[in-house]
């Protein structure tokens, strides 16, 4: 399964790079910088998916106390930091040629930055808490608070005046989008590519996290008994 996902994500990455650089037409108003859209928006999608995964896994962990759900939440939070960082960095790089600034306190940008801090907060709680279930429970609460931020980010461009364009993805996506056929195809291929890659890395990380937990338990046992 994981081998298939690895091969699929690698192949799809190559296809996406080809489509973004060679196949898709250049947008007339924004020029070549508009192609950043095909990376930036899928990264945003994965960042949102991650916080939902962290939130749902944390709730289930709080109810069942099963370590598997904690491993899922932890892995999703770690990947969430990576993707949230990339959302902010790619957004800043895109903002420079389009808005003339690297950063503005736009509602969508600000709420995304809050999401980044939530992910970092989750990992900090995990790192600084003592081994055992208490730290996991505290981190789960942080994750739940962070999950509230996801719909706020999504709806920011509707609720507040923002420089961001209309929604292109999700239930409230604008029907009268500016994207033409080839742009839409490239966008969805990129979206699928990043999703497949995310699933692959998540599965790898969850497995490694379970091994880390097992190893920590053995370490504890050895140090206490021998």
């Amino acid at each position: 399964m994981k081998t298939i996902l690895f091969v699929a994500s690698f192949t799809l990455m190559l296809v996406t790079v080809y489509m973004v650089f060679m196949w898709v037409p250049t947008e007339q108003n924004l020029g070549v910088s508009q192609r950043i859209f095909y990376v930036h928006v899928p990264l945003g999608w994965i960042g949102m998916v991650s916080i939902f995964v962290v939130g749902i896994a944390s709730v289930i962990h709080l109810i069942t106390r099963k370590n598997l759900w904690d491993a899922i939440a932890y892995s999703a939070a770690e990947l969430g930091v990576i993707f949230a960082t990339l959302i902010l960095v790619t957004g800043a790089i895109w903002a420079k040629p389009v808005w003339g600034v690297w950063w503005s306190w736009d509602p969508k940008l600000t709420t995304t930055l809050i999401l980044w801090f939530v992910y970092v907060g989750y990992l900090m709680v995990r790192s600084f808490s003592t081994p055992g279930s208490q730290g996991r429970r505290y981190a789960s609460v942080v994750a739940l608070l962070g999950a509230i931020d996801a719909p706020i980010i999504y709806l920011a461009s509707i609720w507040w005046r923002t420089a961001h364009p209309n929604l292109n993805i999700g239930p409230l996506a604008a029907a009268d989008s500016d994207l033409d056929g080839k742009m839409y195809i490239t966008f969805f291929v990129s979206l699928i590519t990043f999703t497949v890659f995310y699933v692959y890395v998540m599965l790898e990380r969850i497995q490694m996290r379970k091994c880390e937990d097992d190893l920590d338990e053995v370490h504890q046992y050895v140090s206490l008994n021998w």
Binding site: G31, V32, S33, I36, L86, P97, F197, E204
Partner: peptide
Amino acid sequence: DPEANLKYLFAVFFLVWALFFGYILFL
């Protein structure tokens, strides 16, 4: 010039791939 901002596009791809590879290296 429509291709004036090509460096930004390359910067995005470079950073995304660098971070992905960095994370895989970390793992």
